[in-house]
Design a protein around this nucleic acid. Sequence first.
DNA 1: CCCGCCCTGTCAGCCGGCTGTCAGGAAAGC
DNA 2: GCTTTCCTGACAGCCGGCTGACAGGGCGGG
Lengths: 234, 234
Amino acid sequence: MRALIVEDEPRIAADLERALKAAGFLVELAGDGETAWFRGGTEDYDLIVLDLNLPRLDGLSVLKRWRAEGCESPVLILTARGAWTERVEGIDAGADDYLPKPFRMEELIARARALVRRAGGRGNATQQVGRLTVDLNRMTAAVDGIPVAVTPLEFRLISYLALNRDRIVAPTELLEHLYGDDESRELNAVEAIITRLRRKLGPGVIGTRRGFGYHLEDEPPPGAAGDGRAQGRT
Amino acid sequence: MRALIVEDEPRIAADLERALKAAGFLVELAGDGETAWFRGGTEDYDLIVLDLNLPRLDGLSVLKRWRAEGCESPVLILTARGAWTERVEGIDAGADDYLPKPFRMEELIARARALVRRAGGRGNATQQVGRLTVDLNRMTAAVDGIPVAVTPLEFRLISYLALNRDRIVAPTELLEHLYGDDESRELNAVEAIITRLRRKLGPGVIGTRRGFGYHLEDEPPPGAAGDGRAQGRT
DNA sequence: CCCGCCCTGTCAGCCGGCTGTCAGGAAAGC
DNA sequence: GCTTTCCTGACAGCCGGCTGACAGGGCGGG
């Protein structure tokens, strides 16, 4: 999960970054409205945390521009306590949730996770796809109910697949959501993680669609009769 | 265990602080309603002791606001003797227990401990996880029934792990619950305590999940015979 | 008031797991 | 059968976590 934090107060930004990283997010920062606008408009984030008080370009304007440009990332805005108008305006401008300052970090993490899950179409914290179970809160994975130890990066990959279960995810997209704007990684890095995951999870969990990308196997092959290609479409 | 005392009478506050510290809590103080609200809304406490008579913002309002904001810490309210209505209102507002003034410190400690344990999902004063036993009242620890001498800080750490047995606890979270808002400590301090604890408790008690955090080992390896099968976690 | 012990945080160095890269091999599509 | 795409085992660098050593501070005893 790739997140963008838009916050000019360095101290708060650092706290947010630490908390989100601990929650398994890949975190990027923007300190003012203009860079925020640029980043959010250019890159694809699974979550944006947006403070409204910003230098150079205020948060509401940034949000409106994003939405006008077709950016659909879930946005969680941080408002000053009691600033009613800000909240209303924020929701109007396309925010998905708001959190009044000051707040506790757990609260933010909980809402952040809820937003990400909701964006995936399902509200539940434990995602079940075929034989695989992914617990987004506890950051654990299991196959057929048997827990499997996964590393942080492996978990990020598999949870991204779980949240995008009903489509094929391109390797380049995975690259982007695993490493953000760090361009130095090669595509093969994703393949390596996939291999390691498959070794841990066993066969029949992560599927490949040659030329398109990866996806989680929807259902266990119903009969022992192995018809190699159950999927009709291509 | 991190506790917040909300009490404007300095004398009582000092008594409470002393007693809770002696009981192994990490104690922070708030002298009026507004700071109490701020602290409780921002930080994560394992217990809050709340006097209802407060300057600037009365206790019930503080409690209601906390609950409205999603604060779930157990709250023990102190009421004046015979103030029936206060108790009822307190429970309605989301208090977990109340104690009429004046009270004996032992009574408060007992209830405080009960609340903390209940928040951990188990009511028992002696927590058992795998080979480890932690007695929250006597502040003692034992492995395989053999008592182990632990220092106050070590005990706070291990009891926190015991009360959060069914999840991985991040080092930063331990830092927060061991030292509160004292930011001066480094992460390495936690690692040092872990090392000392492991030396005392022996292997197979405190486990590490690289990249995630620490947890108490759930079950002793059943037989000396290593079951070579792919263990889900280690 | 001084002394000494215990507790505890910091530092530095070591170790091992995580992870990216490479190169060769297998499989799918034509 | 050839090409393209993907898989995978091996290897190396890096970073996170572990640990022994040291120092400062608090507390109790003398």
